[in-house]
């Protein structure tokens, strides 16, 4: 069974915002990603979103594009991502792992094999960026059959009737895209996020996690105040980009990159909410 709901319940009980870092699996190699995942958890990440590298990431901004290019240059494949998740799970039985990516690698592997691979690797949720509900085929049912959460996006352009339908098929958490644009863009219109989240609240009890444009303590605090937690992607991938070659030999550099999440964790925990 997925670890997401228990994790979210713990956070809710402790009145703390969920903090979910995103990193590209295999950027620049799987050993580095695994070391980073452990550091991120040690510094307060509640869950981890692992990006599946794809050659044509048309919803991502330049920072994540470069991360994907590094991962592909390092030979990352979807099978390798599943193996990475399994190795992480061997060491950490508690932290939820969510795979996030584009449909084509999953389609070429086959939905059945992908789902079985996720189950074996202890993956807790799957989010396919370019697969609207109407085109999802039997993938959601296959994932549900293995107890894996189906996470969908809601954006500022999602009409309320469509949001209702998306929520019906979503489990784990609802990913709210804070802005019109790609990952790593600047978060400008905060009022509209507040309004839209308030609308979504009326439709669901699922945790609402806000992503896109969250890059530091200030943006994380602002967005966490509106939802149940935040996702930080591009800002972390930028730190990974700056890692020295053969980063696993430099644990202090890995720690430094992950410290972005440590800082945001402390900020969220001191945000007037009760800390357990």
């Amino acid at each position: 069974m997925s670890r997401i709901a228990p994790c979210a319940a713990r956070a809710r009980e402790q009145e703390r915002g969920l903090l979910i870092p995103y990193l590209v699996a295999g950027d620049p190699d799987f050993a580095t990603t695994l070391a980073l995942m452990r550091e991120l958890v040690a510094r307060g990440a509640d869950m981890i979103e692992l990006g599946i590298p794809f050659s044509d990431p048309s919803s991502d901004g330049p920072v994540i594009q470069r991360g994907v290019e590094r991962a592909l240059a390092g030979g990352a494949t979807l099978a390798g991502v599943l193996e990475l998740a399994r190795r992480f799970r061997d060491q950490d039985g508690r932290t939820p792992v969510i795979l996030m990516g584009y449909l084509n690698p999953i389609e070429i592997m086959g939905y059945g094999e992908f789902t079985a691979g996720c189950a074996r690797a202890g993956v807790d949720g799957v989010l396919v960026v370019d697969m609207p509900l109407a085109e999802a085929g039997d993938l959601p049912a296959l994932l549900a059959g293995q107890g894996i959460d189906r996470i969908f996006l809601v954006s500022p352009t999602t009409a309320p009737c469509r949001a209702r339908e998306i929520i019906e098929y979503t489990s784990g958490y609802l990913y709210y895209v804070s802005l019109k644009g790609v990952t790593g863009a600047a978060l400008e219109d905060r009022e509209s996020v507040a309004g839209n989240i308030a609308g979504l609240r009326k439709l669901t009890d699922l945790p609402i996690i806000i992503g896109f444009g969250i890059r530091d303590e200030e943006t994380a605090l602002a967005m966490n105040a509106l939802g149940d937690g935040v996702i930080i992607g591009s800002a972390l991938v930028e730190k990974i980009e700056a890692l020295p070659p053969e980063a696993t030999r430099h644990p202090e550099a890995i720690g430094e990159a992950a410290e972005l999440i440590g800082r945001v964790r402390r900020a969220l925990d001191h945000d007037g909410k009760r800390v357990s």
Binding site: S58, S59, L103, V129, D130, M131, P132, A134, E135, F152, L153, V154, S155, P156, T157, T158, A159, R162, V177, K180, G181
Partner: peptide, 12 residues
Amino acid sequence: GGVFVGETLVRA
């Protein structure tokens, strides 16, 4: 065919 786009573009 079909419509395989990110959520932001679905409405457009």
